[in-house]
């Protein structure tokens, strides 16, 4: 039972990761690929955030009488990673716009047919 519920957060991260990865690989549409990539990254964010939680830990603000705090560092780290993720998504979308202009399609198969790339 602990394997399923005790490690619940890991299961969520794992399932999300596989979903994201599957979309990334299986989908031929570039936008869907980006969505897959996002889900994939988000699963890692969740993994990080959940590992900072300490049972019984309080919000990490210094207050009288509190002994245990939740670890704030993973949150800080993941804030950075989220920014990076947003930048990646923005860049990817920009590229897709340019690809659409150049090829008139955002389907992998169509693009491959035109000049063998992708």
């Amino acid at each position: 039972m602990t394997l399923v519920f005790g490690l619940f957060n890991y299961w969520v991260a794992m399932v999300l990761m596989m979903i994201g990865f599957y979309i990334l690989i299986a989908s031929g549409n570039l936008i869907k690929k980006i969505i897959g990539l996002n889900i994939f990254q988000t699963s890692v964010f969740i993994l990080y955030i959940s590992m900072g939680k300490i049972k019984g830990g309080a919000v990490p603000i210094l207050t009288e009488g509190t002994e245990i705090y939740t670890n704030p560092l993973p949150h800080v780290l993941i804030l950075t990673a989220i920014v990076v993720g947003v930048a990646t998504t923005a860049l990817a979308l920009a590229l897709v716009v340019r690809i659409k202009e150049a090829y008139g399609s955002i389907e992998e198969d169509d693009i491959h047919e035109k000049d063998g790339s992708l």
Binding site: L37, L91, A92, L95, V96, I99, A102, S117, L118
Partner: peptide, 13 residues
Amino acid sequence: DRRALTAAFQYLI
């Protein structure tokens, strides 16, 4: 070359 775009996209992924 327009393939630069797809190359960049592939590399990005």
